[in-house]
């Protein structure tokens, strides 16, 4: 027996969140305020994403959770269990089988398809926050499309590092209108923001929801003489030999040996299952 409503939140709250989501889809990249609810997990653990997932979940959904690409971190496991228990939905680790994917800090390597929904956990939704702390002022800047400041940030990057050093949460312009923070995904993932899937962004502590409908135009900001580059470590995965996936550098032992592996664990595992082997696998 469980004493919760389906997917934990009561129907009225879900309707309120769905209205915010629909508004977000109607105005791509615009941050819609919503009344964030207390969830049985602390802020900073994806309460924004969890509320969005709860509001859109149906009993027929197959749910996947990734945390920096991995299905089996404590955070990913506990959110997956939460919906298994409160919604009784099927769960999966396979990107292609999932209908709803909640993510923190990555977009899966397998191209998403029409009908899938990607839900992002967002810590700081306001891309202008870094340079303009006033919420009143940043809202005005969005409404008047005054985005010079975003380029000041990139200018500062280049003047200090010789290149645009922003590697995560790289700002984008959505449908030529709103500047948006794509959450702290690596900029390698930015091109994947143009997708046939629906993408929803939930910030719990900051009480904001925003969205990208399928096939929305998403352009990463840059300068003519310093164009945007979706780069990654110049190496191949040592487990599955993939050289086009985003890699994590993991420390293997106390002697400081390191190894590059896919950050997307499902992608890596399915390649290995299909017979691909990297230099580590081959050595074993």
């Amino acid at each position: 027996m469980n004493s919760y409503n389906f997917a934990y939140l009561d129907e009225q709250t879900k309707r309120m969140i769905r209205r915010a989501i629909l508004k977000g889809l109607a105005v791509p990249g615009y941050q819609v305020p919503f009344a964030s609810r207390e969830m049985p997990m602390p802020y900073g653990w994806g309460t924004g994403g969890v509320q969005v997932s709860a509001a859109i979940m149906t009993p027929a959904d197959r749910f996947k959770v990734i945390d920096q690409g991995s299905d089996d971190t404590t955070n990913a496991v506990s959110i997956r269990r939460f919906f298994e228990r409160t919604a009784g939905v099927e769960v999966t680790e396979t990107t292609t089988e999932a209908t709803v994917i909640q993510t923190r800090h990555r977009i899966p390597e397998m191209p998403l398809t029409s009908g899938q929904i990607l839900v992002y956990q967002v810590p700081i939704p306001e891309p202008l926050r870094f340079l303009e702390p006033s919420e009143v002022e940043t809202r005005k800047m969005h409404s008047l499309e005054e985005y010079g400041l975003m380029h000041v940030k990139l200018y500062e990057d280049i003047s200090q590092h010789g290149a645009i050093a922003t590697a995560y949460a790289y700002p984008v312009k959505v449908e030529g209108r709103y500047v948006m923070d794509p959450s702290p995904i690596p900029k390698f993932d930015n091109p994947k923001l143009e997708s046939p899937a629906i993408q929803l962004f939930g910030a719990g502590r900051e009480q904001r929801i925003y969205a990208l409908p399928p096939h929305t135009r998403v352009v990463s900001l840059d300068f003519e003489d310093f164009p945007f580059e979706a780069n990654k470590a110049d190496a191949a995965c040592e487990l599955c030999a993939a050289d086009t996936s985003y890699l994590d550098e993991v420390i293997m032992d106390d002697a400081g040996h390191r190894m590059f592996v896919c950050s997307d664990t499902d992608f890596c595992a399915s390649r290995r299952a299909a017979g691909h082997a990297g230099i580590q696998e081959a050595a074993i």
């Binding site: 010079g148 380029h151 000041v152 200018y155 003047s159 300068f223």
Partner: peptide, 27 residues
């Protein structure tokens, strides 16, 4: 002024605000 932005960024802001997008020229 923006006290947390370099002198160059402060001076370049108005140009960027009206659409300048060439780093070298702004600098």
């Amino acid at each position: 002024l923006r006290m947390n932005v370099s002198a160059g960024g402060n001076v370049g802001e108005r140009q960027m605000a009206v659409g300048a997008r060439h780093y070298g020229a702004i600098r």
